[in-house]
């Protein structure tokens, strides 16, 4: 799929949901637990698939998962046990460098 900034994606194998914070203008394969994620904010009708047991690293609420080389950043809005990955490569948690509170 070609993701858009601000797009919400839901796992099809567990409870995980993310929002796209940053992405390049190209097709990407975004997966959770090894299965492609679908547009939406919660487990969609397709949920109930079986995750890959080898891809159960989990996604934590509010954490950012990013690949700096691809320029992809996903933010977890609902946690779940599946691993977030782009083009088959698991995304590491991005270490936060918070801005000073501005308002």
């Amino acid at each position: 799929m070609r993701p858009r900034v601000g797009q919400m994606l839901a796992s099809t194998v567990d409870t995980t949901a993310v929002i796209v914070v940053r992405c390049p203008d190209e097709d990407l394969e975004i997966t959770c637990g090894g299965a492609a994620m679908a547009e939406g904010n919660g487990p969609g009708p397709a949920a109930g698939g079986t995750p890959d047991p080898g891809l159960m690293g989990g996604a934590l609420l509010g954490k950012r998962y990013a690949d700096e080389d691809l320029g992809v950043e996903l933010l977890c809005t609902k946690p779940g046990p599946g691993t977030l990955a782009v083009n088959g490569v698991p995304l590491p948690v991005k270490t936060a460098k918070p801005l000073p509170a501005s308002d």
Partner: peptide, 9 residues
């Protein structure tokens, strides 16, 4: 919000 704030920070 997502661009400028860290969750539960």
């Amino acid at each position: 919000v997502l661009g400028t704030v860290e969750f539960a920070a």
